[in-house]
Nucleic acid binder design. Structure first.
Lengths: 252, 252
DNA sequence: ACCTCGATGTCGGCT
DNA sequence: AGCCGACGTCGAGGT
């Protein structure tokens, strides 16, 4: 599982280690110690010398972590080339990609630890409660939104984007439904609004089109805007609540 | 720098290690080996037993990495409690937070490595090319958008959000500018459109209000919508181009 | 390759 | 504490 581990490696030794493992073997490579990191690409950043943790995965993704937060300080989702070289007594790692053109460069000042771990298997991972699942559920059971609703289309494409759920209500009026798996914001209201407008343009004049924002909750300002625009809100939950789970344990 | 390192620890030993270092010392803690991970909260997920790398930072953030990508498989940005305990011969780590209420639970099946690293200092980090900087630059040099432009306001609040740049052009017409540091999408066009509408409502009838989308590029569909809505596009770059840098090296 | 949108988005800033 | 919007967003899915 630990393929190789170096303590306090020298520049040349570290460069050799990185070139040997970067991409070549299916390993997750880590380097910890004092580094300096610069980035040039969509933006440009510099990190002063400090203690960081660098992780280079087998798929070529790179991340450099500072002491705080889930998000790396610097990163590269994919790399076209990753190379290490000893320069002026320091090991320098350069990770580049084209499209977008960007480069992360790491100067390894004083490295305490370099290791290659065998983290390589893809194991099964399942997630529940996504918007896609919510959409599928509501497509099967549109009455969860409103009795008498008939679903006409999923992801119906308009000029301005895809409509989550396109339907007809009990009175035969068209209904545009915008789904959110989390609390709806102003943004969601405007998204719905522009879909409703787009649908109206494709229908005969004075055909009424309803817009429903379906989400577990809505922010107060968003609710205001919603009302002003004559749109509707329907509370709907992405994950079954504890009660629902108890009531229909076999459904999920 | 390496505060402590355990190879092939037992359940109790590992639990002790985690409880000792989690949050207590200002360390970055890692565990590598076979684990099972479950998450319950905003969504719900399960990861089958597999080789993962767990990172627990001193600020209480937790992330569990699989072999691919920058994004962790599971994570928790902040935790209220992190506890480890030996159960049925396995060390089980539980990380929880309220608001939102969620829990990550890790069953450590076969651990090869646990280590605590001193990654604790906050070193200087600067980034260039953000939208905020672009906004500041254009506020100082509005002629970069258009000759004769006078900036009236930054982040002017309307009912529907803040206007990046509110200005008056050479002819005295009001101008709403929406900035994007990257290629502008449909969304940006609609954002701009909303702001223009909001401003029109506050001005006497028939006062003309121009809307300019300032970005390094625009997607083709967005450009279509922009034209349909009688809005304008102005190419503007968040980072100085190589030529500009060469021409005015002292400005940046 | 471009485009669009979801995300357990995360994170910071402001009210 | 809630709300909003940027992000080097990432990543997946469609065209």
């Amino acid at each position: 599982m630990i393929r190789e581990q170096l303590l306090d490696p020298g520049a040349a030794e570290l460069a050799g280690f990185l070139n040997r493992h970067a991409r070549a073997c299916a390993c997750l490579v880590q380097v910890a110690g004092q580094m300096e990191v610069t980035y040039q690409g969509r933006a440009a950043s510099t990190a002063e010398a400090g203690a960081y943790l660098l992780i280079l995965k087998a798929d070529g993704s790179l991340q450099i972590h500072h002491p705080k937060g889930v998000k790396p300080m610097n990163w590269q989702p994919k790399t076209d080339t990753v190379t290490a070289a000893a320069q002026d007594g320091f090991c320098v790692l350069t990770a580049s990609r084209k499209n977008p053109a960007e480069t992360v460069q790491v100067v390894m000042l004083e490295i305490q630890l370099a290791q290659a771990l065998e983290i390589t298997d893809e194991a099964g991972f399942v997630i529940a409660g996504t918007e896609a699942q919510l959409q599928a559920t509501l497509a099967r059971q549109p009455e969860l939104i409103e009795p008498g609703l008939t679903v006409l289309d999923l992801e119906l494409l308009t000029d301005v984007g895809g409509i989550d759920l396109y339907a007809k209500d009990a009175k035969g009026q068209y209904v545009v439904v915008e789904l959110k798996r989390a609390k709806a914001t102003q943004e969601a209201v405007h998204q719905l609004s522009r879909y409703v407008d787009a649908v109206r343009e494709h229908l005969p004049k004075r055909a009424k089109v309803r817009g429903i924002l379906a989400a577990p909750a809505i922010s107060l300002p968003a609710a205001m805007t919603l009302e002003r625009l004559n749109l509707e809100f329907k509370e709907i939950h992405a994950l079954p609540t504890a009660q629902e789970q108890a009531a229909q344990p076999n459904l999920f």
